[in-house]
Design a protein around this nucleic acid. Structure first.
Length: 217
DNA sequence: GCGACAG
DNA sequence: ATCTTGTCGC
């Protein structure tokens, strides 16, 4: 049996973090795609929700059930979940050249600056943003009335407060911190604690887990 | 060594 | 993430 090699995974993350491009989004996206995974035992239930960037109207949803081999260890989430998300993105059959990805997890606000949002963004070379419910790496600092996450002396993420909920958004790939702020901000609708595309991906994957359990007894 | 630790 | 009863607050 092959065991996961965390040493090599660390090396890969440090190496690949050098491929992250932090720059202003170079096109107006047509779609924003929310990505999330829930679990039943060793099966990951991945969901992708594509919404129009302007109206946030949902245009496409895809889901996949995939066996996961890698355990969850903080800092190595991508090696567990990214394969599931690559599969569901293939099923989505959407032209990602005109889209941006919103991934449940961190981007560069990661111990080796290569969280799952950056991982997926770099591998597919698609603009991406990470959105996490808890902080993983970096220091939260107040910067002109706004809480931001500083890593390596740059602003890599921003903290959003929705009532008592906190959301930590960060640069994934091919976006600027200003893009992260403006894009995540306009995805909050109503009182939902997560940006809409991610809220739906999260909801649908949980619904899927519940339904599948009923079907299994 | 100790604490912290996305999903 | 998932499991899982009662309980706090609006």
């Amino acid at each position: 049996m092959v065991v996961f090699n965390f040493e090599k995974a660390s090396y890969a993350q440090k190496l690949l973090s050098g491929r992250i491009r932090i720059s202003k989004l170079d096109y107006v996206p047509r779609y924003i795609v929310g990505l999330d995974v829930s679990y039943i035992k060793d099966y990951g239930l991945g969901v992708a929700v594509a919404a129009e960037f302007d109206s946030l109207r949902v245009v496409k949803v895809a889901s996949v059930v995939d066996r996961v081999e890698v355990p969850y260890v903080p800092g190595y989430l991508a090696f567990r979940e990214a394969p599931v998300l690559f599969k569901v993105l293939r099923k989505l059959k959407l032209d990602l050249r005109e889209s941006i990805l919103m991934v449940n997890g961190h981007g560069i606000t990661h111990p080796r600056r290569f969280g799952i949002a950056s991982h997926i963004g770099v591998v597919l070379d698609v603009p991406s943003i990470g959105v996490a419910k808890r902080i993983l790496s970096g220091r939260v600092v107040k910067l002109d009335g706004r809480s931001v996450i500083v890593v390596d002396n740059i602003v890599g993420g921003v903290v959003f407060s929705r009532g008592r909920h906190r959301v930590y958004a960060s640069i994934g790939h091919r976006v600027s911190i200003d893009d992260v702020v403006s894009i995540v901000d306009r995805c909050f609708v109503g009182l939902k604690p997560l940006p809409y595309p991610l809220y739906l991906a999260d909801k649908y994957s949980r619904d899927m887990a519940r339904d599948l359990k009923v079907r299994l007894g």
